[in-house]
Each structure stands twice: as C-alpha cells, then as structure tokens.
Amino acid sequence: MLNIKNLHVAVGGEEIIKGLDLEVGPGELHAIMGPNGSGKSTLGYALAGRDGYEVTDGSVEFDGRDLLELEVEQRAAAGLFLALQYPVEIPGVNNAYFLRAALNAQRKARGEEEVDSMAFLKTVREQLKALKMDEALLKRAVNEGFSGGEKKRNEIVQLAVLQPKLAILDETDSGLDIDALKLVAEGVNRLRDENRSFIVITHYQRLLEYLVPDRVHVLSDGRIAESGDRSLAQRLEREGYAFLDTAEA
C-alpha cells in the first residue's frame, strides 16, 4: 500500500525528516509515536503534499504510484486522507456542501459518476449518528464554532464518506475526552478492512487500547528509532522516551 524509502523532508530549509523508511501493507494499522518535534506531523503533511514541506530525497510509492509526483488533490483522489491535528475552520462554507463537492471532485478525478444527493445525505447522516453528532452540523460552516471534539469527529465523518485507501490520523485523539475518544476509535474501527490502511500518529498509548495497531514505530529526530508490536506503545507509556537517548548513545 505505502512504501517509503529514505525520505528526507525539509521545512523552511531545515531538515526535519532525515531518512525515514516505512512500509504499510493493505489493511494494516501502524501507530507512529515520538517526542514533540520528532517529525510526526511533518511526515503527515509531506505525504499529503502540503506546500512548504519539501521532499529533498527518497521515494514514496502509494498503491503502485509515485506519490511524490502527485498534486495534493490528486493524492486525495488516489485514496490518501490526512485527518488534521487542527482541522481548519472554513467560514461561510456549508459542511454538507463541502463534503459533497470534495467527494464529487474525487470521483470525477477517478472517472466515476457524481454521487446521488439522496444517497450522499443518507451516508452522511448515518455517520453523524454513529459519531453522536448533531445533524444540524451539516448546515453549519465547516468546523466553524465546533468544539475541539466536534472538529475531530467531523474529520472522521469526512474519512467515512470519502472512503480513502490510506488514512493518516494526526493526533486525532488530542483534546478528546474519553467518551469522544471511544467514538472516534469506533468510527475508525468500523472502517478497517483488509484493503484500507491507517497510520495513526499519537502521543498516547490510550488511543491504541481501542485501535489495536499491527505495528508501532517510534520517531525520533526524523528517523524511525524503534519499531515493534503494540507492547512497544505500552513500554513507552511506562518509561517515556528516555530509552531513545540510551539507544542512541
């Protein structure tokens, strides 16, 4: 699904990702943990193609294509989704209108027909209900006036409607209370299948109690310093990142 080799990414001329290798197979969920400033969000943005995140070396193959050749929206249409740590407010743009426009833009890019509006609304309403979100949010501007938790859940609604092949969740758990965290995790679990992959960037092991990862990676100073199964996350919870210093020393 995703094959990253020797990825180097610079932001504002400063190298943040310094030779990262990562392979995510179909249907796998990988967790990326690591201290602040280790490059976790930079990895998400670089994969999504954000301006200012310059890939200076390495390669990224996504579903058989060279991801780095694609524009941001082409990556989305190819099946890549980045749930932002801080979802952006778009005043004046109706949530339902935006989501439908996005879905249709992706479908058009893939040569598919536009979605039927009734079927679209049905899907969105089901997702809102599952995430315990008020249907009135559909008529409100995208993320405007949403609480922090609502914004994060809205990302999951988008994820469920857009049905990407690979979803990168950038600290989707941050700022969520325990009930909202469970809802978000359930939303993600409903979407897991043998073809859809996830990269979950998180600081806390708590989320991984609900989203059971196939692999856990620790990012440190722009590289993957350690990989393992879910017990690695539990160890980090107990011991923190101090062992990285020991390992590097």
Binding site: V72, E73, A76, L82, V88, V93, A105
Partner: peptide, 23 residues
C-alpha cells in the same frame, strides 16, 4: 484552508472559489 480543501480532493481553482464564496 486552501490546503485543507485540496487535501479533501478539491482542485486549487475549486478551493479558491469555495473560499471566496465562503468569505
């Protein structure tokens, strides 16, 4: 905002038009 809209599949032109309309 422009990146956010594009990351959901809208083209640059669509994203700009939507942001202008929203404004």
């Amino acid at each position: 905002a422009r990146f956010y809209l594009r990351s959901r599949g809208l083209s640059e032109a669509q994203a700009i038009a939507l942001l202008k309309y929203g404004f």
